[in-house]
Design a protein around this nucleic acid. Structure first.
Length: 772
DNA sequence: GACACAT
DNA sequence: ATGTGTCAACGCGTT
DNA sequence: AACGCG
């Protein structure tokens, strides 16, 4: 059979994939199609770390047990959209670099299993932005020993104020990468790396060596700093290796490193899942860039003033100063200072109207643009950016309330900050990459006329409110109010848990199982203009309140079962719901999952306009007082959440607790009794079974908590289930009026306590589990 | 894996 | 038509 | 100058 061939289109480029069935890893039976799939799936992360870096390729056209070869020169037959840069002696070689997922897939199709990167980008080949330490263990050394040395070296580097990141090499050792400001030559960076390694070896002479010769290493670990030479390369983050098992060079957090047993612990078949679960451990790495320690300027205590003139506002900040009264505003006074040269900040500025401010460091000040409609969340969307007066560098960390009457009055929030770098110069504009600790993206800004610029997103979106799968975070149940000062307490709203997905000014409402609820709540859809966000994912509870503001669960759940549009419309007017917002997972192009709870909630509170069905679910610090008040008021319970915790989608953890005033149990509906009077057409009560491991326990009957509509609906659901015989021996008072059905429907029942017979005391039906 | 070049 | 060769690099230390 | 090393 001839090799299978397929043409795919990625990023607008047609790529012919050949020999998809060819086995590249014989021991693991991994074929080329899987390799391509891997690189495609991992592309957003692979590009984040390796885009624009000149490459050295290791290709295995007939698999890893056959002949491999290195390739650096761009072949003449490469399609014209494969970009390259001439480097080296007499610019002899034309090095390929990645620009998009298509270029990565094209290389994968050439059986290019390993991609080795240079420690600089094509924008600035003379100034490395990474310092690399390749830890190469001696043959006898255990991986635990390698880890130990890596931790020690990390501490050593921290003493010099570097921020080391670690990855497995996919072979035997570990790689430490330190992001550095791209302002030194290769020689200077190498010297700094050598300096650091030598002082480390002086501290721990038994552990490491810089000896390249094997016979001189004396069972020590080689700290290979020679990667930092101009022409050297190192295997890129997330690259496969051409070794049995298809290991991946995997970035890991320092905490996670402790659990890892081998440099080859991550392999093609699990690596993508791991990132999906734990995120990219190197995200935002470059926001931690520092000048190399041999070239650090002493911090300027005085504002940098090239003219030597004191007390005079520098020319670039005259407009900034003229607009403000620094005895009233908390904003930083004008001063031109020296920074890294590459800092950026994006402010979310809730002034007269909400907008974003983009600020990029240049010549000691922050060039600024106001972006009324927010940063474009994905490629293809353009946003107007209006140039405003340059701000002082101290504005990088400014956040707070600008008082009424002052210019820009309102709250100023840091939405993201970090380091940026220009990726391409254009006539009337440029491309730039923003790298914050929890957010990175590439944009293009283009000057139109006067103060008007156009901002466009270049890098693909990592999340999309509608297309990404979102899951809600869950709470553990407890009976004690957690102590410790870092908990915040909220009312537990008794309604329908929902995610509000907002995309470019449209909204969808999903249940926590991902069920579409949008059509059920037109009054919420109509109120979208009360939410100040054009793109967001918000966590909420939809409730129906009684006259005194208590949620009535029965009424809101009945809204879920309506299917007739006219009836829904009528109910939305006569019995409208309200929606309590309490968390945010995503906001205007940035994931908030790794922001602390109080920060996420501050944003939620800020984005709700008053006077709509959307309300902020406020919190208090005094849990005992809220517990008492909520119990007195007859509410369902309270929530306790750790103020500093992250949002873990789909996870139930001790970061969130629920405290309920009444207990609940999930039970199977095992049958029902005949009803009388009004209920003669439906049922009287439901027989309940609890499933405990393998055992079924009879929990008695529940006969209240439903209205006639729901009872009719439930009777229809039960009638289609197979009839059975009574599933236990003990006689009950109503055996002759009972119908037994296969236990398939699960419901939640609230109760006061459990009787000696094991049945529930004061049981009240809450909901079918599928509605929750 | 794709090509140039030789047989 | 079929087969074969090509596809990297350089500093550093020792011999 | 050649070789070993990564």
């Amino acid at each position: 059979m001839a090799g299978s061939t397929q043409v795919v289109e990625i990023d607008g480029h047609r790529i012919k994939l050949s020999n998809l069935e060819k086995v590249l890893y014989p021991e693991d039976e991994i074929i080329k199609a899987e390799v391509i799939q891997y690189y495609l799936k991992i592309a957003p992360y692979f590009l984040r770390h390796n885009k624009y870096r000149p490459l050295s390729l290791v290709r295995y056209p007939d698999g890893i047990s056959s002949h491999e070869f290195f390739q650096k020169d761009r072949p003449s037959w490469a399609p014209d959209w494969i970009e390259s840069i001439r480097l080296g002696k007499e610019e002899k070689k034309d090095y390929i670099f990645l620009t998009n997922a298509a270029s990565l897939v094209w290389l994968a199709n050439l059986a290019c299993l390993e991609l080795h990167i240079m420690e600089f980008t094509k924008q600035d080949p003379d100034h490395p932005d990474l310092m690399v330490f390749d830890l190469d263990p001696a043959p006898e050394m255990s991986f635990d020993q390698v880890k130990q040395i890596a931790y020690l070296l990390k501490e050593h580097l921290l003493e010099f104020e570097y921020h080391p990141f670690v990855k497995t090499s996919g072979g035997k050792g570990l790689h430490l990468f330190c992001p550095i400001a791209p302002s030194n030559s290769h020689g200077e960076v190498f010297q700094a790396a050598k300096d650091l390694s030598e002082s480390f070896i002086k501290k721990y002479p038994q552990l490491g060596t810089l000896q390249l010769r094997k016979d001189k290493r004396e069972q020590k670990l080689l700290i290979d700093i020679y990667r930092n030479r101009e022409t050297q390369t190192v295997v890129g983050a997330y690259s496969l290796r051409g070794k049995p098992g298809a290991p991946v060079s995997m970035p890991v957090s320092w905490e996670m490193l402790g659990d890892i047993q081998s440099s080859q612990a991550f392999q093609l078949r699990q690596a993508a899942d791991h990132i999906e679960q734990h995120g990219d451990a190197w995200e935002g790495m470059h926001s931690q860039a520092v000048p190399i320690h041999t070239h650090r300027q002493p911090k300027l205590s005085q504002p940098y003033n090239p003219e030597g003139l004191k007390h005079k506002t520098p020319e670039q900040l005259e407009e900034y100063a003229a607009k403000r009264d620094f005895s009233t505003t908390p904003e930083p006074p004008p001063a031109v200072t020296s920074g890294t040269g590459h800092a950026f900040v994006v402010h979310r500025h809730h002034a007269t109207s909400l907008h974003y401010d983009l600020r990029l460091e240049k010549d000691g000040v922050l060039l600024s643009w106001a972006i009324p409609r927010g940063l474009p969340p994905e490629p293809g969307i353009k946003r107007l950016a209006v140039e405003t007066e340059p701000h002082p560098l101290a504005y990088l960390t400014f956040e707070g309330e600008i008082p009424k009457g002052q210019y820009g009055a309102g709250s100023m929030w840091i939405f993201a900050s970090g380091q940026y770098r220009k990726t391409k110069e254009k006539k009337d504009g440029f491309y730039f990459q923003l790298t914050g600790s929890r957010w990175e993206a590439e944009f293009r800004i283009h000057h139109m006329k006067d103060k008007e610029w156009l901002l466009e997103r270049v890098s693909p979106a990592l999340h999309h409110p509608y297309e990404s799968t979102w899951q809600v975070m869950l709470a553990e149940q407890t009976t004690r109010i957690p102590t410790g000062s870092d908990y915040r307490f909220e009312v537990k709203w008794d309604g329908i848990r929902a995610l509000l997905l907002i995309f470019e000014g449209t909204i969808r409402i999903l249940s926590r199982n991902g069920r579409e609820l949008t059509q059920q709540f037109p009054e919420l859809v109509a109120a979208l203009s009360y939410l100040r966000a054009s793109n967001a994912v918000l966590d909420a509870e939809i409730v129906r309140l009684d006259a005194v503001g208590r949620p009535v669960f029965k009424q809101v759940i009945s809204r879920l079962h309506q299917s007739h549009p006219a009836k829904i419309e009528r109910l939305s007017k006569s019995a409208p719901v309200v929606c309590y917002l309490f968390d945010a997972l995503y906001l205007d192009g940035r994931s908030l999952l790794q922001d602390p709870l109080i920060r996420r909630r501050a944003w939620v509170q800020d984005l709700i306009k008053p006077g709509s069905p959307f309300r902020f679910s406020s919190d208090v610090e005094d849990g005992a007082a809220l517990y008492e008040a909520a119990q007195k008021m007859g509410l369902e319970g309270i929530m306790a959440k750790k103020a500093t915790s992250y949002y873990y989608p789909g996870k139930r953890s001790a970061d969130w607790y629920k405290l309920k005033f009444r207990e609940t149990m999930d039970c199977y509906i095992a049958g029902f009794t005949e009803g009388q009077g009004e209920r003669s057409s439906v049922f009287g009560a439901l027989h309940l079974l609890q499933k405990n491991e393998q055992e079924w326990i009879y929990r008695g009957k529940v006969g209240t908590g439903f209205d006639m509509d729901f009872m009719q609906y439930l009777r229809e659901r039960m009638d289609v289930l197979p009839k059975t015989t009574k599933p236990f021996e003990t006689p009950t008072a109503d055996d002759k009026v009972s119908t037994w059905i296969a236990p398939e429907l699960v419901c939640e029942v609230e109760y006061a306590s459990i009787t000696d017979q094991g049945t529930l005391r004061e049981p009240v039906f809450k909901s079918l589990l599928e509605d929750r």
